[in-house]
Nucleic acid binder design. Structure first.
Lengths: 299, 299
DNA sequence: AGATCGTCTAAAAAAGACAAAAGACAGACG
DNA sequence: CGTCTGTCTTTTGTCTTTTTTAGACGATCT
């Protein structure tokens, strides 16, 4: 059956909203709540019924009032509100990037589904989607072959990334002065400075801002294939950053400084300078990825 | 239920093989047949049982002999041997490339499944896979939006194609002289000459040889992302050639001649010459695609 | 009269069911 | 003793069923 994680997330968000109200306050209409929570009225009704059941709100007739302030115990836990899709992605990326599977290994849909505690259909759908990314291949007679997160994959990924990023950066420099992208670039630059200033505490935010910068630059290509590739890159790097801990802070600091040089180059609109800055950053990122793969895979 | 199109294709291939034998001849062992037909022994056994049922072979004990020469009536028809996947792909590409759906239109999984006479799951799996190609987008709340085979798509496709092909061609020129790719290139060149000589009858074969040439060149990149893109390109062009009939012969002849210039340039290993030939061919292919889209979509 | 609510319908997601296909293993045959 | 065959188990591809969600429409309340 379909999981009701949507309902659970809406329920938690509703508790958050109720925490700001005093006991005895009247709740908004169903339609208004649906708008605020970004779900259908059907879900809102289910949430309200559950809140009444839990004794958080009272529902006499059509007037609903807050009975008591919601507590942490009322909330659904993080594992419950996670969509099946997100669960699978996390588990799978963990498996892949931590080198728990050897390149060339056969992947068994049924076994993975059991291992991740999801239905075979959900697993199958995810594998189908991921087979477009080059991490997996579908065998002609059924079954899946894992191609692996190895040096070859990293090389192929970076070769394309270089091709796309250099093209996008050149196009970015040609954007008219009043294009909103310039303001977004300024904002990203400001946040880079803030992050560097507070690097001891905030270095975890690197993955996010890295994705934002490269997505902004690549958007200048106005090309859906570049966009798709970019989101694959973000996905892989997001999880890669998450689990590769050696020299994490230093590594991120180096990348942030390279970003600043790159941003300055973009703002100068000087083609050779942009190209040089982009290449310098890509080369250092490539080296760092190669090194972490060579270390992670002792085979 | 899973369809037995595999069994039916193996059955037809087996009939083809038997047609070469005289009545009374003994058949190979199951394992040998499985190897020859490229299927499992389970299927071979089903095929042999069906052949005995049809009276084509006799099965007394473990010795099997051919009773009579197979006829056309024994064969399964083309529609029966087509896999569900292939059916969907054909119908969908027909719909897309013939402009039966407007860009931005909502695509309904259930309705498509009914229309194509396949199950919603099979349809859904195909749409999931195709959404990686940029022809479709998945909406956050379920449902699909068709992005369309329009001028934007053609432009984005060709921009990437140009990027990849130029890179691949340059790498191709660096292949060592004893690389098998050169022999394959010679073979493709020979078949180009044969095709041009017999263009009045053979112009239908263009789609196939076009895909072969570009796949060979792009293989020099040794990059799975280039390969994936290349197979998407082949898929789209295959069906596009199939249905765009205006000036078909002339169009193909022009492309074949451009191919020959391109092949000669590759053999010269002269970088600027290769680049010029590739660009010339890509530009003319781009123009021809743009023109056919502008004509096909009167909106 | 206008907003709000209860109920119904349709569509999509997930799970479950089942046939087809692949592969393993032991016994039979030469 | 090696090869071939019969049977069984596992896994995949596809279809069907169940549940969840979105949205529409008329009834109800203020």
């Amino acid at each position: 059956m379909r999981s009701n994680d949507r309902f659970k997330r809406a329920y938690n968000r509703c508790l958050d909203a109720l925490a700001a109200l005093p006991p005895g306050a009247a709740l908004d209409s169903e339609a208004a709540l649906a708008r605020d929570l970004g779900v259908s009225r059907t879900i809102v009704r289910a949430v309200l019924a559950a809140l009444a059941e839990a004794g958080v709100v009272s529902a006499d007739g059509r007037a609903r009032t807050l009975v008591r302030a919601p507590t942490a115990a009322d909330r659904f836990s993080a594992t419950e509100t996670e969509s099946v899709r997100a669960t699978i992605e996390k588990r799978f990326m963990e498996m892949v990037l931590q080198h728990d599977v050897r390149p060339g290994a056969q992947v068994n849909n049924l076994e993975l589904a059991r291992q991740f505690a999801v239905s075979p259909s959900a697993m199958r759908e995810y594998l189908t989607e991921l087979s477009q990314t080059g991490l997996l291949d579908r065998r002609r007679d059924g079954g899946w072959v894992f191609r692996g997160f190895d040096l070859d994959f990293a090389r192929e990924l970076f070769d394309i990334r270089e091709l796309f990023e250099l093209r996008s950066a050149a196009l970015f420099a040609d954007l008219p002065g009043d294009d909103p992208a310039w303001a977004q670039l300024d904002d990203i630059e400001r946040r880079h400075h803030a992050l560097i200033a507070d690097i001891d505490h905030a270095y975890k935010a690197f993955s996010q801002i890295d994705a934002e910068l490269h997505e902004l630059v690549n958007a200048a290509s106005r090309n859906r294939f570049v966009d798709k590739f970019q989101s694959l890159r973000s996905l892989i790097f997001h999880y890669h950053y998450l689990w590769t801990k050696d020299d994490e802070k230093e590594r991120n600091l180096v990348a942030l400084r390279e970003h600043l040089v790159y941003i300055a180059a973009l703002k100068s609109r000087n083609r050779p300078r942009i190209r040089a800055a982009a290449l310098a950053h890509l080369r250092s990122a490539r080296r760092s990825l190669y090194a972490s793969i060579a270390k992670g895979a002792p085979g």
